[in-house]
Nucleic acid binder design. Structure first.
Length: 560
RNA sequence: GGCCCCAUCGUCUAGGCAGGUCUAGGACACCGGGUUUUCAACCCGGCAACAGGGGUUCGAAUCCCCUUGGGGCUACCA
């Protein structure tokens, strides 16, 4: 039996890569792919390369590459070669490697292993439909005689699109050796000739990726199962180009959404659409204004025809207070998850260390990582389990580290708590022991940083705690006792509240909860004794008075 | 439709390649109880799975075949 250790030292230096197309933020699936490649490289003491696959002129957004890199950095996934880092195999943006690809395209053309095509989109469509009628996939009819350079020039002059197709060898079956799935055989003739150079002069993914993997000396490619069907074609190209042994492929399972199907970034707009449809009396004009969309653009989106950019979706959701499922890595950041949580959780989606360990630090993950333990079957992204993981990681994290994460979080959500100093934030964090997300810590304590007149009273809380039973009366009593106190500490506040509860023959909750609602407007906050002490006596009294006034007013007006 | 992949508790999974030690282990969720100034956290207990059918074998969750189910791909996207 070959151990993981032996396998790693037996092989040459391991080189892996993550090759995202910069179409938006890094999403969970991409992060997982990046992570596995990174873990393998780190485990083996090899190299991890970041390569940006931006050969599609239509889909790239200018900021996307930076967004992806920011998200990788947040996760702690660093790259040895790539944009920003540099390296001997650059450039690392495929759009800047055109001359390299041209050279290899020309080589295939010269060797009659590829040929020019001049079909229009309509002509291809017709071919595809014909194939469909015969219940087959389109297998492009290769011409008997390949067009030559003169033909290509003529087509260009006539304004016809000029592409290049790879002539896939049709005589033998193609066997792909996959680390997680074993040997997969594609029958001879199954893989049709595919386009390697687009009419805009850029190579297709299937071509660029083969050339770059070769030139960058990639030894292991871990990617999603959705690429499995590309592999025979790529492997075939690898051979035609004379690149020798292809790299080790490992096709991971796909991450499935709890709504069914592959986890996709389309889910956020879809969730928003659904929520808007289910809502009544929304002012659509106002809504459009909030997102700085025209009313028409909004309608188009709501009809499901087109989707605006993510920041617009976020704005709409925020305005409507609709929680959207987190899909992109930044979404999780903004929801108060720790990067350690994401790395740990993602690593366990389709991989496990082989023992009962689940909560693991990054170092442990690296130490335990073994590519042969990748799982074959698809897995569902379980948000509840993710929450449990986050709870554990918050619990585990040293205060200083947590403080750092918390400050990052406050910044990204633009919280009024940014104003607080480290000492105060540390105390707050300690008071929130057991919190599941950084968001919960913020929500429990932000009332301390709001102006007294900016407190929003939650209707349900007011009804349940102040209007039912003796809530208001108890609050008034608390006010009097508090006003009479000279020294305020958690202990004296506790003594006062407990004493009062005992006198009234009620549980502590009956006096503590009305006070809590008066301070922060909701039933959830930091422990009450600390809350009062931190807010100070004067401001506590102010808020109590304000609350009594507002609630009594509402009650007599029959508003509640 | 064609091609490809997959199949253990509700979910993530261990076990499978080297068949017996599996009356199938862990975690999350769920249910019941405890603790409690809120939300959490925490403690104790419980429920819960080898998709179905055929083989092979003394013996199958484990090997083979079929069925069913799920997923992926099927672009001048990656």
């Amino acid at each position: 039996m070959v151990t993981n250790e032996e396998r790693l030292t037996m092989s040459d230096k391991v080189v892996t890569r993550f090759a995202p197309s910069p179409t938006g933020y890094l999403h969970v699936g991409g992060a997982r792919t990046a992570l596995f490649n990174w873990l393998l490289a780190r485990r083996a003491g090899g190299k991890f390369i970041l390569r940006i696959e931006d050969t599609d002129q239509k889909r790239n957004t200018p900021t996307a590459a930076k967004q992806v890199m920011d998200d990788l950095k947040w996760l702690g996934i660093n790259w040895d070669e790539g944009p920003e880092a540099g390296g001997p195999n650059g450039p690392y943006l495929q759009s800047q490697r055109k001359d390299i690809y041209d050279k290899y395209i020309q080589k295939l053309l010269d060797e009659k292993k590829a040929y020019y095509c001049f079909d229009t989109a309509e002509e291809l469509d017709a071919l595809r439909q014909k194939a469909e009628a015969q219940k087959k996939n389109l297998n492009y009819p290769r011409p008997e005689k390949f067009p030559d350079e003169a033909d290509a020039q003529k087509a260009r002059d006539e304004g016809r699109p000029v592409t290049v197709r790879f002539a896939v060898p049709q005589d033998d079956p193609i066997v792909v050796r996959d680390v997680v799935r074993g040997e997969i055989t594609f029958a001879a003739g199954e893989i049709g000739d595919f386009i390697i150079l687009k009419s805009d002069g850029f190579p297709t993914y299937n071509f660029a990726c083969v050339v770059d993997d070769y030139l960058m000396e990639i030894t292991h490619i871990i990617r999603g199962q959705e690429h499995l069907n590309n592999t025979p074609g790529q492997q075939s190209l690898w051979q035609a180009l004379g690149f020798g042994e292809p790299p080790n492929y490992a096709h991971m399972s796909v991450t499935i959404s709890d709504t069914g199907g592959k986890l996709s970034k389309r889910e956020r707009p879809a969730a928003l659409r659904k929520a808007v449809r289910e809502m009544q009396d929304i002012d659509l004009d106002k809504l459009a204004e909030v997102a700085s969309l025209s009313r028409e653009e909004l309608d188009v989106f709501l009809d499901g025809e087109r989707t605006p950019d993510m920041p617009v979706i976020d704005k709409l959701a925020e305005f409507l207070k609709v929680p959207l499922p987190e899909i992109n890595i930044v979404d999780f950041f903004k929801s108060g998850y720790l990067p350690e949580t994401m790395v740990n959780f993602l690593a366990l989606l389709g991989w496990n260390p082989g023992d009962d360990r689940e909560i693991m630090k990054i170092d442990e993950l690296i130490e335990a990582f073994d590519i042969s333990r990748l799982t074959k079957s698809n897995s569902l992204f379980d948000r509840q389990k993710l929450l449990a993981f986050n709870t554990e990681h918050i619990k585990m994290a040293p205060t200083e580290k947590l403080l750092g994460h918390f400050k990052d979080y406050l910044k990204v959500i633009d919280s009024p708590m940014i104003a607080a100093d480290d000492e105060l934030l540390s105390r707050i964090i300690k008071l929130c022991e057991g919190a599941r997300t950084l968001a919960q810590i913020e929500q429990k304590s932000r009332f301390l940083f709001l102006d007294d007149d900016k407190i929003e009273y939650d209707d349900k809380a007011v009804k349940k705690v102040l209007l039912k039973g003796n809530g208001l009366e108890n609050l008034a009593l608390v006010r009097d006792r508090l006003a009479a106190m000279s020294e305020l500490s958690e202990q004296t506040i506790e003594d006062m509240l407990r004493g009062l509860a005992e006198e009234k023959q009620v549980g502590l909750g009956k006096v503590a909860q009305p006070l809590r609602v008066a301070l922060c407007g909701t039933t959830v906050s930091l422990p009450i004794f600390d809350s009062v002490q931190l807010l100070t006596k004067d401001r506590t009294l102010t808020r109590i008075d304000q609350t009594i006034k507002i609630v009594e007013g509402k009650a007599t007006a029959g508003g509640i």
